[in-house]
């Protein structure tokens, strides 16, 4: 099988890699680029642990072929914190204990940030449906939903000039 050469932008930086045509974006991130923050929980788009942002839209990277990333922008969990500064979704996950094992956490954080980027004031129901594609087996979702609510409030304050 001849390899594909893919040129893409990952977390703002240009990246090139070689992969088989049937390699998923998730496998390319994890195996070729060493970005293991995106997790594989199912490989079929049913758990959301591999959620990344592809050209501004959140997708399951296990349901994207690596070749499709050619020329596109990919943002992963590794790019959510800017420099050493945590994003409010991350810091609120920590403040509220919204993770236990932490395996689903990268996917939740990428998805929750994507929600708050488009809607600064989602209702509990909107948060729950937005995150329905991210499975968490440890927390029962309660603290995750609260962390997203608190992050939203924090972001609204930041955005509103005092």
């Amino acid at each position: 099988m001849s390899k594909l050469q893919v040129s893409t932008t990952i977390n703002g930086d240009p990246q090139e890699f070689l992969c088989d045509p049937d390699t998923t974006l998730l496998d390319a991130l994890r195996e070729e680029l060493g970005l293991t923050g995106s997790k594989e929980g199912c490989g079929s788009g049913d758990c959301g642990a591999c959620t990344v942002i592809l050209d501004g839209k959140m997708v399951c990277s296990c349901l994207v072929l690596a070749g499709e990333a050619e020329g596109r922008q990919v943002n992963t969990i590794e790019g959510v914190a800017e420099g050493g500064e945590l994003h409010p979704v991350q810091s609120n996950f920590l403040e509220l204990g919204a993770l236990q094992c932490g395996f689903c956490t990268p996917g939740f954080i990428v998805a929750a940030k994507a929600l708050l980027d488009r809607d600064p004031n989602p209702s509990e129901t909107e948060i729950r449906y937005w995150l329905a594609g991210n499975l968490c087996r440890c927390t029962g979702y309660d603290k995750i939903v609260r962390a997203v609510q608190d992050a939203a409030a924090e972001l609204r304050q930041e955005r509103t000039p005092a």
């Binding site: 293991t36 992963t76 590794e78 996950f93 932490g102």
Partner: peptide, 16 residues
């Protein structure tokens, strides 16, 4: 938690 930042930034190394 002491291992929190590692886990919300995707740095923590799990089995796979």
């Amino acid at each position: 938690r002491p291992d929190g930042v590692e886990k919300v930034t995707g740095k923590a190394l799990y089995g796979p």
